[in-house]
Every structure is written in C-alpha cells, then in structure tokens.
Simulated scan of single mutants.
Amino acid sequence: MKRNLIRHYIRGNAGVLLITWLLFNTTYALSFAYIPTYIKMTGGNTYDVGLTYALGTLALALTLPLGGYLTDRLGRRFVINLCTWIIAILTFPFIYAPAWYYITIYYVLNMFFSFHQPALMAILADSLPRDRVVSGFLFTSILPTLPMVVLMPVGGLIISTYGLTGFKLAFLISGILAVVAAVIRTIYIRETMTTGNAATVITLTEAYRSLIITMRGISGRVRSLLLSALLISMAASPMTSIAQVYGIYVMNLSPTQWGELMSLALIITIALTSYLSLRPRLNEDRLIMLLITSSIAVNAIALIPGPTPFIIYAVAYQVTNTIVLTALQGMITKSVPMEVRGRMSSAYIMLQLLGQSLGNYLIASLYGFNKTVLFIIPLTILMVNLIVIRERFNP
C-alpha cells in the first residue's frame, strides 16, 4: 500500500517538480542559505539583513496575485517556465557584490520574479488524488531537501575557508544548476488545466480584483487557516535571517556549525514528514495544534542563557516551521475548486511572505535594544495564534 502511495508522488508532474526542487534546494544549501552572512561580510549589519529579507518578501507578496491569476487564466505550465528561467538567470549577478546593498537589490529582483509559486502548488495539487494532497505536499516538500543534509555544511565550509571568493564560487554553481532545472521544466512539465484565451491582456489591477472576489467566497475555516499561516510565518521569520546572525555572531558558531545544525533539522524533518505522508489517515487539525504548541515551547527554551538551549531552538524550530507551513498549504489548496487554486495559493503565499516581511522588520528594528526579542516576539505571536484558531479546529 505504501508503495502505491509513493507512486503518486514521483510520477508525472510531481516527479518533475521533485527533481527540479532537488536542484533548487542544492543551490539554496550552497549559497542562498548564507545570504545573511554574505551581507555581513560586505559591510551590512543586522538591520540590513532584516531589511533585505523584508523587502524581498514584500516584493514577492505584491506580485503573487498576478502569478495566481495568470496560473488560472493562462495555465500552470506557462507561468512556471517563465519565472523559472528568469530567476535562474538572476542567480548569476550575486557573484558580483562589492557592497551589501547589491545583494539586497539582487535578492529583491529574484523574489519579485518568483511569482510562479502558486502555479507550482496548483499543478502539484492537480496531479495528486484529493485525499493525498496534504500528505503529498509534505512528501514532495521534504524529499528534495535530502541534498541539503550534506550540502548545508559544505556551503558553510566553503564560506568559512574562502570568504567572499567562496560566495562567488557558490553562486556560480547555483546559477548553473538553476539553468539545468529550467531546461527540465521546459521539456517535461505538462499542463493540467484547460485555459481560456491566452492572448487576453491581463492587468495587475484585474488580478487583485479577482483575488478579492475569490477570497470573499471562501469558508470561515479556510480564512482561519490563512490567518494561521500569516501569524506562523511572522513568528518563523527569524529562522531564515536573524537567527543565523545571532548564532554566528553571538553564540560564536561558525558557518559550518550552523550548516550542521540545519542539516540535523532536515534529517529530523525528513523522518517525520516521511512518516506522516505515508500514514493512511492523518488528523490534520491535531497535527497543526501540536506543531504550534511545540514551537511555543522551543522559543521559551531559547530564553534560557547558553549555547545548548539555542541549539535546541535552532533545530526544533526549523522542524516545526517547515512541517506546519507545508501542511497548512496542502489543507488550503485541497479545500478550494481547481479553477481557483492558483489564486488561493497566491493568497496563502502572499500572507506567508507578508508575515515574514513584518516579522523580519519588527525583530530587526528591536534586536539592537534587546536580543531576546528574537524569541519573545515569536513566542507571543504563536500564543495568540493558538488562541485564535482553536475555535475553528477539531483536534
């Protein structure tokens, strides 16, 4: 039975996404994961790190409604191939960064043209049986992270050994791998939806209007899931940026050691999601509540002085964030009709990114006054989220 379940996740479009996500995760492990350190090495400070991530997530959030609308109007394949080629090409400029704000500009541009994410989620949901969408999202989000288990420490070692030259080499390799992924998607991705007139001119205003209309028609439960995604993303924002700075510059971890912690988190995440995705029945509401409660606990542990509580926090919080956000996305996508999945996926990702942007900016602004805001603010947000969603969930 488990073999039949796995077959759904590795054939057709799902298999193409698995392979290309594997390549993109390799590029992330070698280079993009260490952008906070890259900014610090080129003259930036902690506030500049938070600002870069805030601007990047905001740029993507603004274009996501267009991506979702194009996904439902012109088809999944067109949007996926267009954006994949653009972001592959935009990887190469990171090689040249004489000052930190060059990295900010490159990162914002890369995020701006990543509005194909709703198309990726929609084509994956279209290609899976409805009762396997959530478990399929978990499986296909985690399996491609396997290279990161090894390559996160390798990326950290390259940077620790060669400094800025190591960053240039890492982004060169990343750009080449991204182009390979773009070629694979162009050849093998298959459309899953009958589209209308592709020649129709579509405006950003029309895309936003359509998204608003779609949001009005969703159920109260889906609204609760979207709100939860916003709050969890806001609380989780330090893990992609400021937590790395705290670990390296306050806890005196090397980039290699940080990479090893993230690899450990990936191993645990892969084990847990593999177990969850292969279960015949999955109580999704209970899973979400358990993960949020666990996130509250690890942020509380991080307030204890010393490197050991921080290490527990860094590993455990990465695990809970990855699983809960992936599960929420699957629950939302399967709860709406196929013809609006692109727009609903864009709404989910937009709220997720807005949460990250707000969280990064808020914590970066207060970090200089008291570094414990890195844990106190997420702890508070998660407790509010737990209270808000209890009424809509049936654990």
Rank of each mutant, 00 (worst) to 15 (best):
R3W: 11
L5N: 00
H8D: 12
Y9S: 10
I10L: 11
G12Q: 04
N13S: 09
A14G: 00
G15A: 08
I19V: 14
T20M: 13
L22T: 15
F24N: 10
F24I: 10
T26M: 14
A29S: 14
I39A: 04
T46W: 01
V49E: 08
L66V: 13
G68T: 06
Y69V: 09
L74S: 04
R76P: 03
R76S: 06
R77N: 03
V79F: 03
W85I: 10
F94M: 12
A97D: 06
A97K: 07
P98W: 12
T104G: 00
H116N: 15
Q117R: 14
A119G: 04
I123R: 03
S127M: 09
F137L: 10
I142Y: 02
L146Q: 02
P147R: 06
P153I: 07
G156V: 09
L157N: 04
G166S: 08
S174L: 11
S174P: 04
I176S: 12
A178E: 00
A182K: 08
T186A: 10
V201I: 13
A207W: 02
R209M: 09
R209V: 12
V222Q: 02
L225Q: 04
L225E: 02
L226I: 11
A229H: 07
L230S: 01
I232G: 05
A236E: 05
T240N: 14
I242C: 02
Y246F: 15
G247C: 08
M251I: 07
T256E: 06
T256R: 08
G259A: 07
E260Y: 06
M262D: 00
I267V: 15
I270H: 00
L278S: 06
R279N: 10
P280T: 04
I288Y: 03
M289F: 07
L290A: 13
I292S: 01
T293W: 07
S295D: 08
I296V: 15
V298C: 14
P305V: 08
P305F: 07
P307G: 02
T308M: 14
A314K: 09
V319L: 11
T320M: 10
N321G: 07
T326K: 09
T326Y: 06
L328S: 05
G330K: 07
S335W: 05
S346Q: 06
I349T: 13
G355M: 04
G355E: 01
S357V: 08
N360F: 12
Y361I: 14
S365F: 12
L366A: 11
L366D: 00
L366N: 02
L379H: 04
L379E: 03
T380G: 05
M383Y: 02
V384R: 01
I387H: 03
N394S: 14
